[in-house]
Amino acid sequence: MTDKINKGSSEEYEKGKTFIIVEIIEYIPNSVVIKTIIKKTTGNVTVSSFDSGEALTEKTSPFDTFIQVIDGKAEIVIDGHKHQLNTGESIIIPAHSPNIVKANVRFKMISTIIKSGYEEMS
């Protein structure tokens, strides 16, 4: 697991400007890079790059998290079950589920968390 996280800009990405998501974040050797696209109290969208061999420490979120791999291959472990995602594939990590994001080979992903709407569910 790594604690080598290179946080890109924590500000939102420029609105009204076209961009190619896979090109706005670079791979950095021996690092995980995280860049914020949108950050609101109701949720956020980030794009991340993981160098080969890197991983995030296991965590649990109180919200569902949508993950889409946009380059390479990711290993997502949810409640101890391994999922291999290739470019273009997605998965939803359920709220309150312990999870780990690993890079056996380098990859880039989009992560979306929506925090509102939970109060309406019973």
Results as ranks from 00 to 15, higher is better:
E119Q: 13
V47G: 15
S122E: 13
E23T: 10
S122T: 06
V101W: 00
A95E: 10
Y13K: 14
V77K: 04
F19K: 13
A74R: 02
N104E: 14
E23R: 04
I28T: 11
D79N: 12
H83M: 09
L56G: 03
H81K: 14
K7I: 08
N99Y: 05
P98I: 08
I21M: 14
N6V: 15
T65N: 12
V32Q: 07
G16E: 04
D71C: 01
E14R: 03
K115N: 12
L85T: 06
S49Q: 00
S97T: 07
T57S: 00
K115G: 05
E11W: 06
N104C: 07
K73T: 15
S49T: 14
Y13D: 09
N30T: 01
S31L: 05
E89A: 12
F50C: 03
E75M: 04
D51I: 02
E89K: 14
K35H: 14
R106V: 01
Y27P: 00
K102R: 02
Y27T: 06
T65M: 13
I20V: 13
T112K: 13
K39H: 14
K35A: 03
A95Q: 02
S48Q: 14
T112G: 01
I25R: 10
P62F: 09
N44T: 08
I25A: 04
E89G: 07
L56Q: 00
I21F: 10
K115I: 02
G43Q: 08
E54D: 08
K35S: 09
M121E: 10
K82A: 05
I110Y: 12
I37V: 15
D71F: 00
T41Q: 13
I70M: 05
K115E: 02
T36V: 14
V32A: 12
M109K: 04
D3R: 11
N99T: 09
K40H: 13
E11M: 03
I21E: 12
T60Y: 04
P94S: 12
G72K: 00
S90I: 08
V33G: 01
S90A: 15
I37E: 05
N99S: 12
T60C: 06
Y118H: 11
I78D: 00
T65I: 08
K108R: 09
M1S: 10
K59M: 04
G72T: 03
A55L: 01
S61W: 03
M1E: 10
V77S: 02
V69Q: 03
I25V: 15
K115C: 03
K39P: 14
G117Y: 15
Q84A: 07
K4P: 05
K82L: 02
G8C: 10
N30S: 06
T36Y: 10
H83S: 07
S31Q: 14
G80V: 05
P98L: 08
P29S: 01
V105I: 15
N30F: 03
F107A: 11
Y13N: 07
N6M: 00
F50T: 02
V33A: 06
K102M: 08
V105Q: 11
E14P: 00
